[in-house]
């Protein structure tokens, strides 16, 4: 789920950036530092949409760096248990398949793939129904439900299922 929230961060800026475009520098550094990171609480920071407020800088003793508390608005993405997501399959193996929804990696175990879908090995490993009408392979888009998440400092890993109503392949790269 995406959220638009306000976060705060202390930015350290090298003295050489001090000058007219201190603020743009600060913002670009903030973007560089923050976008794409992940926190357990908020999930992935997808994009910074604006800077609300830059506080007063504080010179660090000894280094000359200045610390600014920056409040910024950003879009974060955090998967939740029970959430329905659409994801792109990135890898298929006999254990199941991995899919990605943006920065989040989701694993769908073969236990959580409908029983009528069987693993077919080969060049392009895939899960196919017995009549061959539905096929999950790399690049397929699937709709899945998240049943568990694990949040690390740097990544969020989810386990999903497609063994439920209205879940499964939504677009097939081959067709």
């Amino acid at each position: 789920m995406f959220f638009h929230i306000v976060l705060e961060r202390n930015m350290q800026l090298h003295p050489r950036h001090f000058g007219r475009d201190l603020r743009p520098k600060l913002v670009s550094k903030l973007m560089k530092d923050v976008e794409g990171t992940c926190s357990g609480r908020h999930g992935f920071i997808v994009a910074i949409t604006g800077v609300e407020n830059v506080g007063n800088g504080l010179i660090r003793d000894g280094t000359g760096f200045v610390t600014f508390p920056v409040k910024y608005q950003c879009v974060v993405f955090r998967p939740f248990k029970g959430e329905i997501l659409e994801a792109v399959v990135t890898m298929v193996n006999k254990m199941g398949f991995f899919a990605e929804a943006g920065p989040v990696q989701i694993f769908v175990s073969n236990h959580l793939i409908p029983d009528d879908m069987e693993f077919q090995s080969g060049d392009m490993p895939n899960y196919t129904t017995s009549d061959g009408s539905v096929k999950i392979q790399k690049e397929s888009e699937v709709r899945l439900k998240i049943i568990g998440t694990r949040v690390d400092a740097t990544e969020i890993f989810c386990i999903g299922t497609i063994k439920d109503d209205f879940l499964g392949v939504i677009s097939d790269p081959t067709s």
């Binding site: 254990m95 694993f107 175990s109 236990h111 959580l112 049943i147 568990g148 694990r150 890993f157 386990i159």
Partner: peptide, 16 residues
Amino acid sequence: GMVVTVERHLVNIVSD
């Protein structure tokens, strides 16, 4: 790891 399925007394786990 995370529990994927529970089959009675067996638990399938996806190793982290």
